[in-house]
Design a protein around this nucleic acid. Structure first.
Lengths: 370, 370
DNA sequence: CAATTCTAGTCAGGAGTCTTGCCCAGAAAG
DNA sequence: CTTTCTGGGCAAGACTCCTGACTAGAATTG
């Protein structure tokens, strides 16, 4: 039965929720301001504030309305009590960033820990612990993690796909973080988080788009009806095995294109980004550019066919490079169905930004649910 | 502001909604049965029934509880009043089927109209009018339409994609039906409806799967997080231009495979299903089977990469054929990432079944919203 | 400096909704 | 005929929200 049972308690909790959300957004408000902000009557708001104060969720800040504002009676400012923080963590092969956000959306602390390449799982786990313990302020009520590898939707663990780049290795993020977090740990891959951040930049306008990330690993995030689609195992957008156009017009998997072009790191599953960038800008670059353009636009054709995005956003160390972007856009424009291709808006820590915002929303919901 | 404002009116409408939903599901109930069914107290239910009767949404059927049931006082049975019907329509090149469903989920009428091939738009429109006027009983409060062509998500009109099969032609379903329906007309393509029906067969178990339809036209529906994903323009799953493996290992678009195999209807954009089935079962079938298996499994690889389904369902006149299905499953099993491939469960009018169920849900919501 | 004006917060009254508990009517069972 | 049992209704109580009036206190105004 979908709709909630009607009861007076429902009403009361709805009132409290409105008040709490208003305080999260506006930091500090008087009872009167709360009433106009929420549209609820003054006496009801007063009662709610009394309840929430008693429950320890709201405190009288002691501040009074400044004289300058009006001439009437001074009001008391109320604010959210200390309700704990949420952790937002980004795990990449280069290093780890951990941040704490409070219910107002402020980042209260931050820690960075570098990792030596190639990353070994034990090293990553140790760095993760260090970053989180350094960053933590007060009780962390939940954690949201971005990881630069495919993530199993159910267990939150990294998944190695055959022959596909695997940057971090076997790492059970949930297990590592559990001792440091007093609540659920959510893990998803970095491209999905970056796409969520991109969506929030274009709030309400972009409901359906795709975000293609081209770096040492390749991935694609699909936003449909305003939400990231993860699929059954969380492996939506793992495009390494997508069939596309190879260097001589042959149908091969995307990851194989980089073998044929000799652009993978020897002894590793990852793509050699530096060499790739040198190859598309240096002498005799035309052939490489042509091959990459055809291969990637074959992927974009698949994205258009199976997700029908409004636009396609391309990001990542080499995908975001102007030369590569132009090459891809040009090759893609020749296909029968094409959409606007553009560079990602967010370039600095896009996946952390996405994880941070989700951490905030989850923290707020957790506070409201007592 | 997401959560509804707390008010007493909210409570009342919630109570009415519970009562109405119980009556939709159970056809006829006494006040006491309504109370136990909804979990709401007897006086409250009584009051709600009084309100709803006054509003004309509920009627006293005049029936009394039969003596056999217990020994207590006789109760009065209440039931939903006549609140109109919903139209469910399936438009295919062969013909049109229109049905009326009432709020209990009963199909109260049905009409079929054949169309001569090839279908001309005016002929289809005329057949549509005939089917709907024949089937309609009472006021149709809304219509849900399945159409065997790509459908624009915003306008509900058919969309012709370059070089892709286009079976029904330019047809503005919404405009044709508007005079016959007293409410909104919803249009989507037949594969999406079939997939919805398949989802409802596996209620709650299948949240993420793909439905690949292979017939005169080809399409694919993606169910993610329990919902059909349509994309920005409603063209999700139009796989004709997906890059896949051609007959000699060349990377070509799916639709071109049928050109190379000589399996398209001359002078038309559609696939010649009869000739295709003959080619895969007759003598020298091995080469054709091999080509089809590779081409389709390339499409499935794309579906897996971009949607990560739990299973892939294959249906349609030639896709559902055992020989074809086996061929595809075999070719697909050789790829690095593969999931279970199975035939569609529903084979008789699957898209109409999906449209019918959606029509029912929409009708119920419309009734509850007064 | 006193009167006026204005505002945050509270109080009182009233309307509305839900629930529990009790009672009644009436049919079947004993 | 009495007992048992069930659907339905009534009354009382608890609770929530709202409107409107009131109070306290500060700034402005004359």
């Amino acid at each position: 039965m979908d709709p909630a049972k009607p009861s007076l308690e429902l009403l009361r909790s709805l009132t409290d929720e409105h008040v709490l959300r208003a305080l999260m957004q506006h930091r500090r408000l008087t009872r009167a301001e709360l009433a106009t902000e929420t549209g609820i009557s003054k006496p009801t708001v007063g009662e709610s504030v009394r309840r929430l104060t008693e429950a320890g969720l709201v405190v009288d800040t002691g501040e009074r309305t400044p004289g300058g504002r009006g001439r009437g009676r001074v009001g008391s400012y109320y604010a959210l009590a200390d309700v704990g923080v949420a952790l937002a963590v980004a795990i990449a092969p280069e290093g780890i960033v951990a941040e704490c956000v409070d219910a107002h959306g402020d980042t209260v602390s931050r820690a960075e820990v570098k990792i030596g390449e190639p990353a070994r799982p034990e090293e990553v786990a140790a760095a993760l612990r260090t970053a989180v313990t350094t960053a933590r302020r007060g009780t962390a009520r939940l954690a949201v993690v971005s990881a630069a590898d495919p993530v199993d939707r159910v267990t939150g663990r990294m998944v190695q796909l055959p022959d596909a780049p695997f940057l971090l290795g076997e790492l059970d993020t949930v297990e590592v973080l559990a001792p440091h977090v007093d609540g659920p740990v959510t893990v998803d891959n970095d491209v999905n988080w970056a796409a969520r951040a991109e969506r929030d930049v274009h709030k309400g306008q972009w409901d359906d788009f795709a975000y293609v990330f081209l770096g040492a690993g390749m991935g694609c995030a699909i936003v449909s009806d305003g939400e990231i689609r993860r699929g059954h195992g969380g492996l939506t957008g793992e495009i390494a095995h997508l069939v596309t156009v190879g260097p001589r017009g042959k149908a091969i998997r995307l990851i194989e294109v980089f073998d044929e072009l000799g652009l993978r790191l020897p002894g590793s599953t990852a793509i050699d980004v530096d060499r790739l960038l040198a190859a598309v800008t240096g002498p005799r670059a035309a052939a490489t550019r042509d091959a990459l353009g055809k291969a990637v636009s074959g992927v974009l054709a698949a994205v258009v066919a199976l997700a029908d995005p409004e636009t396609i956003v391309i990001g990542g160390p080499w995908g975001g490079h102007p030369v590569v972007l132009d090459t891809i856009a040009e090759a893609f424009a020749g296909l029968p169905r094409h959409v606007l291709v553009r560079a990602a808006e967010l370039t600095v820590e896009p996946s952390l930004a996405g994880a941070r915002l989700d951490a905030l929303n989850r923290l707020r919901s957790a506070v409201i649910a007592r």
